[in-house]
Computed example of a mutant assay.
Amino acid sequence: MALQLDQIDRNLLRALQQDSRRSVQELGDAVGLSASACHRRLKALEERGAIDGYRAHLDADRLGFTMQFFIEVGLTSQSEKALDAFEAAVRDIPEVLECQLMAGQADYLLRVICRDHEDFERLHRSLNARLPGVARIHSNLCIRTVKDRSGLPI
């Protein structure tokens, strides 16, 4: 069920998505609220689950992660037990940034990040060995990110 948000809430969420390091005073100024009113709104949005955390956006290239792959995974079974086992195993692999349960040709789509070809080879072998119930893996190398998620269209 979608939360009911007024225009000030939407403006506040947009401002946070642009730069969550702003002070409460700066955010309040940006949306036309006092610091105390802005703080109350933020706390209410957190309590209602509209804000699920605050994160730093790291530069993968500068940190040595120069390769990104999208990996389609097909399982031998789509039973609840098989899906649960796969999902539990994938959560323990730090190079897997995202894992999506899919409808279509692949059962799952993984977004993984690697330092180089050798790192990807190690990860690929590890995925085959560590992930239960894998029938097939199809890897796609990302050449360049055209648009990165910069926030929800609030």
Rank of each mutant, 00 (worst) to 15 (best):
S126M: 12
S150C: 09
I143Y: 14
E46F: 05
L3H: 09
Q18R: 14
V112W: 10
R136Y: 15
E26V: 00
I137Q: 13
G104R: 04
L131R: 10
T145H: 08
E80H: 14
N128F: 13
G49T: 03
R48F: 02
A103V: 09
S150A: 12
T66C: 04
A106T: 03
C99Q: 12
R21Y: 10
D116N: 15
I51M: 01
E80P: 11
T76C: 05
P132M: 09
F86G: 05
I8M: 00
T66M: 01
I8C: 02
S79A: 08
A56I: 15
A56F: 15
H117L: 15
T145M: 01
N140L: 14
F65L: 13
E87M: 10
V90L: 04
D61H: 14
G32P: 11
Q105I: 09
I71H: 08
L127A: 08
L27Q: 00
G104W: 07
H138S: 12
V146S: 09
L5K: 05
D6V: 01
L13R: 05
Q4P: 02
L27T: 00
L131N: 04
E121K: 14
R136D: 15
F70P: 00
F69Q: 04
T76Y: 10
R115K: 15
L152C: 00
G74Q: 13
L97H: 11
R41E: 00
T76W: 08
Q68W: 03
D52R: 11
V112N: 10
N140F: 13
E98C: 10
A60Q: 11
L83Q: 09
D84L: 12
A50S: 03
R55H: 14
K81Y: 07
V96A: 06
L63H: 06
G49F: 06
Q18H: 10
E80I: 13
D59V: 07
G74L: 08
Q105D: 13
Q25W: 09
S20I: 08
F69T: 03
S20K: 11
R149T: 08
D9E: 03
L58T: 10
V24C: 03
L110E: 11
R111W: 14
R125M: 07
A50N: 01
M1I: 08
V134L: 05
L45Y: 03
V90M: 04
V24Q: 11
G104S: 05
S23H: 08
Q7K: 00
A30K: 03
P153D: 12
L127W: 05
I51G: 00
G151P: 06
D148C: 02
R62K: 10
G32W: 07
A15K: 01
D52E: 11
Y108A: 07
V96T: 08
Q100V: 13
E87D: 11
T66L: 12
A85L: 07
A30I: 03
A129M: 04
I71K: 08
D116C: 09
Y54T: 07
D59E: 13
Y54C: 06
E72R: 09
D29R: 11
L42T: 09
A15D: 02
A88I: 04
I51W: 01
H138D: 13
I51Q: 01
Q17P: 04
